[in-house]
Design a protein around this nucleic acid. Sequence first.
DNA 1: CTGCTTAGTGTACGTCTGTTCACTAAATAT
DNA 2: ATATTTAGTGAACAGACGTACACTAAGCAG
Lengths: 191, 191
Amino acid sequence: MEAGISFDRLSLRRVTHAAGVVPAAFYRHFQSMDELGLALVDESVRTLRAMLRQAREGGPSPEHLIDSSVQILVDHVRQHRRHFAFLAETRSSGNTVLRHTIRTEIRLFASELATDLARFPILRDWSTADLQMLAGLFVDVMIAAIESILEVAGTTLSPDAPSPEAEAEIARLTAKRLRLIALAVPHWRSS
Amino acid sequence: MEAGISFDRLSLRRVTHAAGVVPAAFYRHFQSMDELGLALVDESVRTLRAMLRQAREGGPSPEHLIDSSVQILVDHVRQHRRHFAFLAETRSSGNTVLRHTIRTEIRLFASELATDLARFPILRDWSTADLQMLAGLFVDVMIAAIESILEVAGTTLSPDAPSPEAEAEIARLTAKRLRLIALAVPHWRSS
DNA sequence: CTGCTTAGTGTACGTCTGTTCACTAAATAT
DNA sequence: ATATTTAGTGAACAGACGTACACTAAGCAG
């Protein structure tokens, strides 16, 4: 099929063609491709925040918190593959405006996670900087997981092989990583 | 200047123009842009391996191993900014062949790091899978650091601001992350 | 019913793209 | 000294690209 096409290889003409519309009609909706991109960022970021919300509400048991969080991540990526693929690709490539917008959103995401973490008793007397560090580390591990999942499933919107086996392996590895990091927390003396 | 241009926005005609040569002359050297890309991957990967080699030889004191490794990373990225920018961008974007090649190389890189780690007494009885997990985690933290450095310094080959201040901040944060992870190592029971 | 707004049409333009072809000048090997 | 390989030329092509313009059909407000 080769249906997957990254955003910055996407042309105005292709977009309008896919929409069954003549190229000039594009300007009735967006002034430029940048504007389209920002609209897509908005939409995708909403998906991202929905994921965090679900993780917050879902797991009251701190025992299986890591596993349930990873599972929520995997499910969300599977269900909103195109949003995550768009974010993952655009985060490191092409358009400068979009790249900065996404990176800023992710930093914000990490900050929210940090305030969530602050509620855990074990982390009560960690400095703000250290909490941000920990949250950023968690987020980066999650991002690596997302990229891996997208890689084993065709980076954009091709159906490809869903390969739940490879997905499960990535989930296990990611949970392992997070558990390792969590293991360090009690022994960290926050400055 | 706007001199920075990512590889997949790069056209055959731009390459030949920059080389001061007519478009058709391109085919005397490469069959396609893919082939050019693979040549660039080769060159950039050599830089990557040189970095690992230096880190291996450089630090015999395990006390400051983390700080010296991070410093080597920062220095290498500064000195070979374009190689790292190329790898970082192409790793997640555009051309499928190049993306897979780079990701495979990075996996190989992590594997080599894993065998290095196996020599540490504390890690003697870790399973191979767990060593790979740890090495992969280190590598992903390093990749995140590289991306951050490139971000604060203009992603491609623009001179921009070198901003050694922001670089140092990233170095500190990365070292902190690695120290946190290292702190967990003694308490991990390898399965 | 009338008038304004919105979404879409069709055409056309200039520019950039990859690729081909026959040809030449220089370097290299025999 | 001669033959062959190599690197580069210049022109030409067909296609895709972004963008502009005047125009039309539908939806809705007054």
